[in-house]
């Protein structure tokens, strides 16, 4: 065993940690505590006085049908985004794994979309699927589909899910490729000799062995769909039509910064914070207990 390196200086370590701690405190903990405090305040319409109301904001928010609608939208949106993003990425990764020549080029090209900013990705899809000028919208209409994301809430949902999933596919692809490469080739060969053909091999050997990667990505994608898709929704639908694509994060923004109902918006973000903490905890537990095969 190597002995632990001990530095005699007692102050220096803290001094070296200080900048990071300061940033964390000022930019993360302070706002979080403020949000927690604000979630228990109610302000008058002019923002002149505020009253401490304990959990009244939470009660109001949780009883609000609009909030429950946003929760429902978020779940539908997140599950759909995660499933589409992961399904397509897995398909692409399996295909890319088979490519022998210039596989590096394929991979690089497939990873590119991840570098596109969410709002720009949103704009891309907004234009492509715009009912009046969009190239793809024209094709859809030619195929006999009455495409109108501006009025039809299902179409709108499909559009934001597509845009959000498209951006995440690259990231998932990267992990799936790595996951596929980590599966020993001899296992696939053994399965082939054991009489399993390609599709069977995938479902009985490859897919189960990708489970750690898949689970990790499920957590990451859900978190992404929950929190990082504001830009896309803002650019593509603005939460509409009606409130058909208004997710929890979007509602926080709308209530807080557009409608200026600060207390309730803060309460909503505290609830979101709890969801993040729960999701992160699951993820950490998972990472800690990462399955080791072999």
């Amino acid at each position: 065993m190597t002995p632990r390196v001990v530095f005699p200086n007692r102050i220096l370590p803290y001094l070296l940690l200080a900048p990071q701690l300061a940033i964390t405190l000022v930019f993360f903990y302070l706002p979080a505590v403020q949000a927690l405090y604000q979630s228990m305040l109610r302000e008058d319409p002019f923002g002149l006085r505020s009253r401490f109301v304990w959990f009244a904001n939470f009660r109001k928010v949780l009883a609000d049908p609009a909030y429950l609608n946003a929760l429902h939208v978020t779940v539908v949106f997140s599950v759909a985004t995660a499933v589409v993003a992961m399904g397509v990425a897995l398909l692409l990764a399996v295909m890319a794994d088979k490519v022998v020549r210039s596989r590096g080029l394929y991979r690089t090209l497939l990873i590119w979309p991840y570098a596109v900013a969410p709002a720009i990705a949103g704009m891309l899809f907004l234009f492509m699927f715009n009912p009046s000028i969009g190239t793809l919208a024209v094709l859809l209409r030619k195929a006999g589909i009455a495409w109108d994301p501006l009025l039809n809430s299902t179409d709108a949902m499909v559009l934001v899910v597509t845009a959000a999933a498209w951006k995440q596919i690259s990231y998932n692809f990267l992990f799936f490729v790595a996951g596929l490469q980590a599966i020993p080739k001899s296992l696939i060969e053994a399965a082939a000799i054991d009489g399993a053909r390609e599709v069977k091999r995938f479902w009985t050997i490859v897919f189960p062995l990708l489970a750690p990667t898949t689970f990790f990505l499920l957590v990451i994608n859900t978190t992404y769909a929950f929190f990082d898709t504001f830009g896309i929704i803002h650019a593509v639908t603005g939460g509409g039509p009606g409130k058909a694509t208004e997710t929890l994060v979007y509602k926080v923004y709308n209530d807080g910064f557009v409608n200026l109902i600060l207390g309730e918006s803060a309460a909503q973000s505290v609830i979101l914070m709890i969801i993040v903490i729960a999701l992160t905890a699951i993820q950490f537990r998972y990472v800690e207990r990462k399955v080791h095969y072999g």
Binding site: P184, S186, L187, E189, A190, A191, A192, I193, G195, A196, R197, I205, P208, L209, A211, Y293, G294
Partner: peptide
Amino acid sequence: PTDRDIAMVFQNYALYPH
């Protein structure tokens, strides 16, 4: 390999870990 009716023992055993 699927249709050759052979069986192979690999150096690293290649057991299905799951």
